Simulated scan of single mutants.
Amino acid sequence: MTGVIGVLTGGGDCPGLNAAIRAVVRSGIAKKYRVIGILNGWQGLIGNDTLPLTDHSVSGIISLGGTILGTSRTDPMKNPEDIDTIKHTLDKLGIEGLVVIGGDGTLRAAHEVSNRGVPLVGIPKTIDNDVFGTDVTIGFDTAVFIVTEAIDRLHTTAESHHRIMVLEVMGRRSGRIALAAGMAGGADLILVPDVRVSMEEICQSLHARYRAGKKFSIVVVAEGTRHEDIAGTTVPECDRDECGHEKFVGIGNFLGKELEHRLGIETRVTVLGHVQRGGSPTAQDRILATHLGIAAVKQIQAGNFGCMVGLQGNQIVSVPLEKVVIQYRSIDPEEYARAKMVAGIHD
C-alpha cells in the first residue's frame, strides 16, 4: 500500500453520493491506497468515528440513494479547537489525503480547513447545482428528473379541474432545479430567486393564458424565491439551521393563496420537499459521480490539494477551492428568457 485516503460526505444528502464513495474506494485500491470512511461528515473527524472501506464495502451501492457514511451539517470552523482535533484524527489514522464530498457549505469549510494545513480535495454535490467551477453537480440530474415527473402528473389534474397548480421545489439561492424541470415539464410559469418578478407580473401572465382560452396553468417556484416579491402578507421570520441556512416557511403556499385571491381561480399547491433528495440516482448522476471520484484520487496521488474536481464541457478539471468559494452559479437572465419564451406566455 502507498498510503491512506479518507472520504467524507457533508451537508444535505443527494442521489449519487454512494457512487462517488464507490469510485474513491475502488480507484484508491487500484492505486494501492487504503481507504477510510469518515462517518457523519466533519463530525466523524472531530469524534474519531470512522470505518475501513474495502471493495466489499462498496459492492452494490452505486444504485443506492443517500450515503452509506452518513452526513451532518457540522461546521468544523465553529469551534477553533476542532481544527486541531481534526488534524490529530487524520494523523492518528495516517490519512495523507482527504476527499470531501459536499455542496457550497461543505466546500467553504473545506477551503478553510485546507488553509489550516489539511490536505484535501473536494467533490461537488448538491441538487441545487449552484457550485462555481463545475457545469453540473452530483444529484442535480436526479432531482430534475423527479420534479419533471411531478410536473407531468400535475398536468392531468390541472387540466381536468381547470386549476392553477403551484409546485414548490428546492432551490435556496438559485432556481436551477425549477428552471430545468420547468422547461422539461412544460411549466407555464417558472419563478426563481435569481430573477425578481412582482406579483402583478405573475398575475398578468397567468391572466393572459386564461384570456387566450387556456383554462389551467402550472407554476413552478423555487423555495428561495423572495417573499417580498410574491406574498401579499407578512411572512414570519424563518429559523436557521446550524450552518445559518434559512429554513423556508413555504413560498408555494403563500403564492397559491395570493393567486386564488387575486385571480379568482381555484389553486392547489404541492410541495415536493425532500422527495427531491431521495431515491436511486439517474444513470447520469452515477456516471458523473464515478468520474469525479476517480479524479479526486488522482489529485491526491499527484499531491494537488486545496482543489475541487468538476466537469466543464466534457472535461474533468481541477479548480482551486479559493476560486470555488468566492461566488456561486446563478441563472443567466438569457436562460430565464428562453424558458419564458417557450412557456406560451407572451407580453
Rank of each mutant, 00 (worst) to 15 (best):
T2C: 10
G3N: 04
V4Q: 14
V7K: 12
G10M: 07
C14V: 04
G16K: 08
N18C: 10
I21Q: 09
V24A: 02
V25E: 08
K31E: 10
K32M: 03
Y33G: 01
V35F: 06
I38V: 15
I38Y: 13
N40H: 15
L45H: 11
L45R: 13
H56T: 03
V58N: 11
I62F: 04
I68S: 13
T74E: 13
E81Q: 14
T85L: 14
K92P: 00
I101C: 02
G102V: 05
D104C: 06
L107A: 03
R108K: 15
A109Q: 10
H111N: 14
G117R: 09
P119K: 14
P119D: 05
F132N: 12
V136E: 13
V136D: 06
T137I: 01
F140Q: 01
I151G: 04
H155G: 00
T157W: 08
T157L: 08
S160D: 09
I164S: 05
V166Q: 08
V169Q: 11
M170E: 05
G171M: 09
G175C: 05
A178E: 11
G182W: 09
G182S: 08
M183I: 12
M183A: 13
L191W: 12
D194Y: 08
D194K: 15
D194E: 08
V195I: 15
M199S: 14
I202A: 10
H207F: 07
G213L: 10
F216E: 13
D229Q: 11
D229G: 04
D229K: 05
I230A: 07
A231V: 11
T233H: 13
T234G: 00
E242A: 14
I251C: 06
G252R: 01
G252S: 02
K257F: 00
E258P: 00
E260T: 04
H261E: 13
I265V: 15
I265L: 12
T267W: 07
T270S: 15
V271D: 07
V275Q: 13
V275L: 15
G278C: 11
S280F: 07
T282W: 05
T290C: 10
K298L: 08
K298Q: 12
Q299A: 10
Q299G: 02
I300C: 04
I300M: 03
A302T: 02
G303S: 09
L311F: 02
L311Y: 02
Q312C: 12
G313I: 01
N314Q: 14
L321K: 09
L321Y: 03
L321M: 02
K323E: 13
V325F: 03
P333W: 13
M341C: 03
